[in-house]
Design a protein around this nucleic acid. Structure first.
Lengths: 352, 352
DNA sequence: AACGGTACCGAAAGCGCTTTCGGAAGTCAA
DNA sequence: TTGACTTCCGAAAGCGCTTTCGGTACCGTT
């Protein structure tokens, strides 16, 4: 107790051993719960370690054991900033899950002039990470292709076009948008438009497919100009919706399905701005479950996904992949939850 | 060339040395640009290293040199999710800057049952990070207090109430909101309300102070109920604004200054919903520069801060702190940029 | 031819930890 | 009392790299 951790001189295992009159090896085995240590000395060692504030150096530990216990996350390179309100939540969930097992999360970005592959390569090559989590997958994704053939453990949050031989966790976007179409049609909507995002991003592509498939299955008619791609944020949504509103009232959609909540908000703005009323004149539906959807007038009907839980599950998956012997890839599909609110109504504005 | 990196057998410095007929020490010095290596052999070593795909193990390197080259970022524990649209951008900027110097960013979250101090302690104690970046500072911040007395290098993004003896980068929130008040008063607004956030968070407190101080300086009158605290998101903003609108038209504010853009959006919704028109009846002003502000109708007047650049600068600061000998704390104050848009107008709705 | 000086490289110790191996006690049965 | 086990701990090697130290070989001077 008298010789507490003195800041400048970090307490090593050798120090601790000398203090106890034991050898370093014994101290190590005591702390790591080896069976060949007398219970009495184990207690003694643990007590002293606590008192002296001993913390094993993770570099030394990793070197000696040949382990890494760190997963890498390469931030998606996205042109428009703030575009991903989930990233922080996913990171939070991921880091939480990892920390339960004393693993670390290394976050890297892609510097100008490099691509994601370079970064992945560097991190894995120098032994800084033992696996990767990637997000925002594209239909055709270089990162996935590279990781796949490299043999490195990785989990993708979101699939690609050929998702068979690797591990991923994805939202069932296609089903979600089929559900959305059904929901709207059940309310009486026949003229349903779709504001789609960047179709090279797989989540947007899947939602687009869900819309198309459900419309086809249910003999829906997709009017001219009903499907608009490349709507990625509020502003482009605003303009896209204005274009929709130029359609004659006869042919104009009575409902607009939006690829994200952000797009939905932009669409609502355009409708209101055009002197129409959301829900009465045109129903709007989004996807994400952003908090803003509750505050907007009328409140936004949406499909909800829990980013934090996605992060945690992805964490479990990558841990499993990194610690256990190579097994078959785990592939998890989660359903989004439809959250009906006021922005969707029967066509013509009669309350449902 | 014949014996390329064979995946399962990582190429160590010893391997490389044997391959070259040199000693490990020589190879190490060659690659690290020691002066006592013949230029010819240095080239030879570098070439072979490239060909064999040699990557020094970062654990070994760190252990041998006694360095860490990693900064820790503890994710702020926030009750309402998605509440911080900047976090991802700040992380991006931070990671970018760090990677320029081959430093890493370790992101940790606070598991249930622990607090931020525990996490900081653990990361620093086991030598996983050599410094910290913290964000979302409170007026009285345990993390800052702890780090301050621990002697660990750290940079705070945002100050505390007693910001003298540590390094930080902050936006001049007080000045920004004084500017905002001036801007509104110059347009003729006398009745200016303020929707403030969580006053224990310093940025919200500073903005509140800016409002109060400017109103006092300019002999403005703060009407009853004009100042509402605890408005943190769109929904609470919606309700708070409804409360403002219950004031008689005579005394009702002609402009509402909002602590964030998200709050401003909620306020706009409430105004529109009440049958009034933003900008003509009531001017709205936010802070952040979110993209949604451009899409909303009318477009939101705001004060802009560039999160990515904030992240980069914080990166430079923490690098400086970690690599150089302890010096005086660097304290940087950045000004937000006022971005006039349509949501602010002269009182009475006459275009400015 | 002997000298000091320089350029270059190998040997070896060490970073802090883990883990195998062997040996000194102690235990028990015959 | 001896032998065979256990129990428990120390010694030592090793993880992959860095860095100091010293030594050889070569250079140019006197």
């Amino acid at each position: 107790m008298s010789e507490l951790q003195s800041r400048n001189v970090p307490v090593t295992i050798a120090r601790l051993a000398r203090h106890l009159g034991l050898s370093a090896g014994t101290v190590s085995r005591a702390l790591n719960n080896y069976p060949d240590i007398a219970e009495k000395t184990r207690k003694r060692v643990q007590k002293a370690a606590l008192e002296l504030g001993y913390r094993p150096s993770s570099s030394a530990r990793r070197l000696a054991r040949g382990i890494i216990e760190t997963v890498g996350f390469v931030l998606p390179t996205t042109r428009n900033q703030h575009s991903d309100p989930f990233l922080a939540e996913i990171l939070n969930g991921l880091a939480s899950e990892l920390s339960l097992h004393d693993w670390d999360l290394l976050v890297a970005s892609v510097p100008k002039g490099q691509n994601e592959i370079d970064v992945i390569n560097r991190l894995a090559g120098s032994g800084k990470v033992s696996g990767f989590v990637i997000a925002r997958t594209r239909r055709e994704d270089d990162r996935v292709n590279y990781l796949r053939k490299s043999g490195l453990p990785f989990v993708a949050q979101g699939r690609t076009d050929t998702p068979d031989d690797y591990s991923w966790l994805d939202i069932d976007n296609e089903q979600a948008f089929m559900d959305a179409v059904s929901y709207l049609r059940d309310l009486g909507h026949a003229k349903i438009a779709f504001l789609g995002g960047d179709p090279t991003l797989n989540f947007a592509w899947q939602r687009r497919n869900g819309y198309l498939r459900a419309m086809a299955d249910q003999n829906g008619h997709i009017g001219v100009g009903y499907l608009i791609d490349g709507v990625t944020d509020e502003l482009s949504a605003f303009h896209a919706t204005r274009r929709l509103l130029t359609i004659t009232e006869q042919d104009r959609p009575t409902a607009i399905l939006c690829v994200t909540d952000a797009v939905a908000i932009g669409a609502m703005q355009a409708i209101t701005h055009a002197g129409l009323t959301v829900s009465r004149d045109i129903s709007i539906m989004g996807f994400d479950g952003l908090p803003i959807g509750e505050a907007v007038q009328p409140a936004l009907t949406t499909l909800h996904q829990d980013s934090y839980e996605i992060g945690r599950e992805v964490g479990r998956m990558i841990l499993d992949l990194c610690t256990n012997s190579p097994s078959a890839p785990t592939q998890t599909l989660w359903q989004a939850k439809l959250t009906p609110r006021a922005s969707v109504n029967r066509p013509g504005g009669n309350p449902a």
